[in-house]
């Protein structure tokens, strides 16, 4: 399965879909960096991320840091359980700094 970053609107909303892993890391790095130029305020929904690995986590860390350097407000939202597992395992919630919505048990259906 692929991984794509889809622009939702002109106000800087994006949706990330697919496997955020080493296999797509090169592409995703460019895709992610390119969005920073588009707006002062960017929101990326992770709702479509089905899988994430260390490379993916590194990309999220990278884009967060790059945004900060460029003075862009970047918000990650809609963490799927795949993302949450990684963030929790690496205990990155604080570093990434985005509020993570932790769903109840019932909502946790998309976990593999």
């Amino acid at each position: 399965m692929e991984c794509r970053l889809i622009q939702q609107d002109r106000r800087g909303s994006f949706v990330l879909e697919g496997e955020l892993t080493i296999h797509h890391a090169l592409d995703m790095k460019q895709a992610l960096l390119s969005v920073l130029a588009q707006s002062e305020s960017i929101e990326i929904s992770l709702a479509g991320v089905t899988e994430m690995d260390t490379a993916g986590a590194q990309l999220l860390l990278m884009i967060k840091r790059a945004a900060e350097e460029q003075g862009v407000a970047l918000r990650l939202k809609d963490h799927t359980s795949a993302v949450r597992t990684v963030v929790e395992t690496m205990q990155l919630a604080g570093t990434l700094g985005d509020p993570m919505l932790i769903p109840g048990e019932a909502a946790d259906g998309d976990h593999p």
């Binding site: 890391a25 260390t54 490379a55 590194q58 990278m62 884009i63 790059a66 350097e69 690496m90």
Partner: peptide
């Protein structure tokens, strides 16, 4: 983790 431009996304920069 290097600056974004220099970062090779296929490399591992993380420590634990």
């Amino acid at each position: 983790l290097p600056p974004a431009e220099e970062m090779d996304p296929e490399s591992c920069y993380l420590g634990f």
